[in-house]
Design a binder for these strands. Structure first.
Lengths: 243, 243
DNA sequence: ACGTAGCGTCTACACCGTAGACACGTTGAG
DNA sequence: CTCAACGTGTCTACGGTGTAGACGCTACGT
């Protein structure tokens, strides 16, 4: 708001914050491909080259956007119920992903290009907080690290899952789905076709996330029999580990 | 046909297969950004515009590459031990990801742009096979779908995790890691810094994957005790017990 | 033999990231 | 107050990109 798309004389001094926020807005509204040095420059009423004072690269700009979103995630380690805390963080992450679906590919993918130790600090903070939480819950640090990886992987996986279920135009879904399913040879895809109504029924992301978290936490509890147990109390059958 | 006298430049007739394989090779060897219509054209000794006969888009080309890799995944539903089958498929997927790391972003990310029903068939086949496997194991279809989602999410998450642990130059890792960790304010990142040696110790991806699978399968088993029991009911039964 | 349909090419255009030189306003030292 | 240094934004330019559209060519069905 506040002005037309072009020729706006308004020009506050640039700053990294300002640039990144404009970039995020652009990505949110028009997708990743729209985040272009030229377009962002125009959005800010500046020459595209000005941006290079605040991000050495387009790639760096992308990292900045991802960091901006991820930094909103706060995991506090002060609650006694760490499992609840894990769930809360998971849902928080999910909400962030839903609020910025176009940024999700960056979040899950950009780290592939950057070794852990060199990642932006805002990205590492959730990791640290998560470790703190798990260690406070009684897990030995190395195990906490492993657990963190499983948990984070679950989150990334879930969010990717859910986002591809989201449909822009819910009205067109029906026709689209049938159209798509009819295309599939029935003898080769009987199961998938049989699930048409379930696929049409929509997708409760929060419930699905909880389901996956249940699996993880229950599994964790089941595995604890052979490993030092943290703050949980129940015990049951002990399956042997493999490989 | 088409076997004429071999001239100076060899130019077999193009085909979608041929184009996609060349594209995959390019991505494998030089990364995603190197997959450019012009470069691919040059690679094939053809005008870039020729490619548009076999892929309507660069985006379609990317989808094709992802499909090409994913289609190599085969899940057979004929084994009685479905859990073992799940593990096998997971490790197979992991191997594919390791063999084509540059394609992984496509695999996890491209579906976001395409509603499920319109995805390339090669991409849907693993889904169908997986559903068949779970349903044969006794799960009701809808539950099988949910389970599939958790499982597939876990796979994507794990692979993303593992790939960002991979280091191009293992010798430089040490210095790099220390450099990076030293950068972090000690009072803000005590846990992370404390895990330096664990991070340096390297990452056993297969083991980590098994660990995550253990969590999922054990959790599944644990949940079954309170929910309507799937595993042991149907005719082609496979009890939830693990070896 | 001849149309014809598909494959490949050529040209052209709008857009992209970014290197490098440069103009300008601010600031701090003398 | 002067002036040099510096940080900020601008301008120009270059090589690369995706792809629309018209066009030639070759192979093939008839």
């Amino acid at each position: 708001m506040t002005d037309g798309p072009e020729g706006a004389p308004r020009r506050p001094r640039l700053s990294r914050e300002l640039v990144l926020h404009a970039a995020l807005r652009l990505v949110d509204e028009q997708g990743l491909e729209a985040l272009t040095m030229r377009r962002l420059g125009q959005e800010l009423g500046r020459d595209p080259m000005a941006l290079y004072r605040y991000a050495t690269n387009r790639a760096a700009l992308l990292d900045g956007v991802a960091e901006l979103v991820l930094a909103q995630l706060v995991i506090s380690a002060d609650t006694p119920d760490w499992q609840e805390q894990l769930r809360r963080a998971a849902h928080q992450f999910r909400q962030l992903a839903l609020a910025h679906p176009n940024v999700v590919p960056l979040i899950v993918t950009r780290p592939l290009a950057t070794p852990l130790a060199l990642r932006p600090i805002g990205t590492l903070r959730p990791l640290e907080q998560m470790l703190e939480l798990l260690i406070a819950a009684g897990y030995p640090p190395v195990r906490a690290l492993h657990l963190y990886r499983s948990y984070w992987g679950l989150l990334h996986g879930h969010v990717l899952n859910e986002l591809q279920e989201v449909v822009v135009d819910p009205e067109a879904t029906d026709a689209l789905l049938r159209l798509g399913l009819d295309r599939l040879p029935p003898e080769e895809f009987p199961r998938l076709r049989g699930l048409a109504k379930a696929l049409l029924a929509g997708y409760d992301g929060a419930a699905a996330l909880d389901e996956s978290l249940d699996l993880l936490l229950n599994g964790l509890q089941a595995v604890e029999q052979q490993a030092p147990a943290p703050g949980s109390r129940r015990r049951r059958a002990a399956p042997p580990a493999r490989r």
